[in-house]
Design a protein around this nucleic acid. Structure first.
Lengths: 354, 354
DNA sequence: CTGAAAGCGCTTACAG
DNA sequence: CTGAAAGCGCTTACAG
């Protein structure tokens, strides 16, 4: 099974000579093969100067023949681009940001860039270390998915490297920010419940350190106010964006004296936890309590019952962030706009009877 | 907000001089500061030779003073290690492998290595390209999370680079494989259902191109056989490991003539889809049909009702794979063993009444 | 134990 | 339009 020395190369591994450690071709070999200087090959590779068609052809043939692939490390060292962009995500296994990572991959790939993912763990110090790591690896730019870095830290970073940041509105030289309208999303979710006749709507909040969490709360209050419903602080319980928060929040809500007929959870994970909590108390969703989440995670369609929620385009967010980075890298002023929030009414919300 | 030139550095960004593009220190500067040669600094950095304590101290002081961080690209180019290991995952946003990625990060980090994640999309050709990309980035080794590469391709790759692969049993020089006992897992799940009195147990299979899927099916059959229950092919429906497969499988099962009182789905995602499918047909879980999944995804605890399943230690898998890689890199023969499968009986499975 | 030197594979002013 | 040369920041034989 392993003595295949004389057989044709294993699929995909030894197909290109460059794939073999020793077989790796260098730019110099290409130059020799094409009968030009290394500089010329480099220029053709980078489109950094006009080269006669004759030589260009010769070089391209040589590259194809040798299966040459430029060495990114040498490129990076020599001061050129590394064609890689650092991505600071908070948890590599986040159910929400996962789609964003895929969006980044999908957008970067055709442009010849590769993402370098590092995890900041919602911790400013860790994120700062991530920046150091990425910079030492000579990434051409950094995409920061939300996180806890201060605006100042981000702006400082952007002074030496293009930066795209999501989850905030910030403008600084070399920096582009992309934000979802969390306020509007929170408003939509709440209004949806109000339109179904609910007046006593509990809110399971996210960590108030996150701007998106505070915005969603603002949206909740705005919708209430617009409908002439008094805001009741007793109906707002804190959460931390995890399933267990939703479960705990429901317990707390049920312990309290305030009655409620609906719950708006600041994200789907908490909504799912809340659903389980309600079930534990023999309360049916949506017959007894309506429930709306936020994010529209891939799995929320398969919740039982399927979760009503505010769709947040995580994949699109990734693509747009990467696209903005590509534009920044090309020296252009990025244009990118996040889609507006949409309410997805599924089966956890229904008209209040009586 | 951005004119902070004279203020103290922004937190975490400019703290170390190396963080600033222009401020990046080189090994040569450290050498000068410490009054030794660059070679000596390099040796101390790499522990590649015995150096007098005096110089070592001087160098360490210089490093600290200058905030020097070695440039990984230069290291890589110069032929040394890049302290990075490539990780071929199939989808960066996989709910199952996500935990494994985190495990890899957590294990690699303290050792000073960073992971480089690329996605193979369950496609041999794409995975082969991933290998090329990783190799051109001079990773020190490659971890392959399952995927579709042939054993031969993997073995070929291992000839020039240490390789750790999960999801198969394969032995080749320079390669270490780590596999979960899918057969046993399938057996446990099925036996659990049998012990609860079920005899008519449907099986929603995974893609039979995956060894783990065929193994789980084998386990299902083995448990049936051990209990003297005849295997009924009509009770086995194909699936593709996605939620929708589970939903469709249930429809198909219900269309068929065969009655069943329980379903074993080859993974949790399909089990969740199946649960929704059953609900759509007004069948209650577990009152009317018992259901068992496989994987124990983080979200399965919060399914309604919480899903009975076979726990697969994805995070551990990641740690072990990374640990094995570290051992391979250190020239040792890896020792690492996957935990045995465990059945987690939650609330979707119950004794067959009557 | 420790330097000086060459080299890793590219890019980029500098000269034609 | 195109070379020759220097240099990116390290490591590693080669000599002491």
């Amino acid at each position: 099974m392993t003595n295949m020395k004389n057989k044709s190369a294993a699929p995909g591994t030894a197909r290109t000579p460059a794939a073999l450690g020793e077989g790796a071709r260098t730019l110099e070999q290409v130059a020799r093969e094409a009968g030009v200087s290394p500089s010329t090959v480099s220029r053709i590779l980078n489109g950094t100067a006009v080269v006669s068609d004759l030589k260009k052809q010769a070089v391209q043939d040589a590259i194809a023949k040798l299966g040459f692939v430029p060495n990114p490390m040498a490129r990076g060292l020599a001061g050129g681009r590394t064609l890689s962009v650092g991505v600071i995500t908070q948890a590599i296994d986040s159910p929400f940001y996962g789609a964003a990572l895929r969006g980044i991959e999908d957008e970067l790939d055709p442009a010849g860039y590769s993402p370098l993912f590092v995890s900041g763990h919602w911790n400013a110090a860790a994120e700062a270390r991530c920046i150091d790591v990425l910079r030492s690896r000579r990434v051409d730019g950094i995409i920061v998915l939300t996180g806890r870095l201060t605006d100042e830290a981000l702006a400082a970073c952007a002074r030496s490297l293009p930066v795209v940041v999501t989850g905030r509105n910030l403008s600084a030289p070399g920096l582009f920010s992309l934000n979802f309208d969390n306020f509007e999303g929170g408003r939509l979710a709440t209004r949806h419940l109000i339109e179904l006749g609910h007046q006593r709507i509990a809110f399971i909040a996210g960590d108030q350190d996150h701007p998106d969490a505070t915005e969603r709360l603002r949206g909740y209050r705005a919708a209430l106010e617009a409908a002439g419903i008094a805001f009741d602080p007793a109906l707002v319980v804190p959460g931390e964006y995890h399933e267990v928060s939703g479960l705990l929040a429901v317990n707390r809500l049920l312990d309290g004296a305030q009655r409620f007929t609906a719950i708006f959870a600041a994200n789907d994970q908490m909504a799912l936890g809340a659903a389980l909590g309600l079930q534990r108390h023999s309360l049916r969703v949506p017959e007894d309590v309506s429930l709306v989440g936020f994010d529209d995670l891939p799995t929320s369609v398969y919740a039982i019952p399927p979760l009503s929620t505010v769709h947040q385009p995580a994949y699109e967010l990734g693509r747009l962030a990467a696209s903005a980075m590509l534009q920044l890298l090309a020296g252009a002023a990025p244009v990118a706009e996040m889609p507006a929030p949409r309410l997805i009414a599924r089966e956890t919300s229904r008209r209040l009877h009586g």
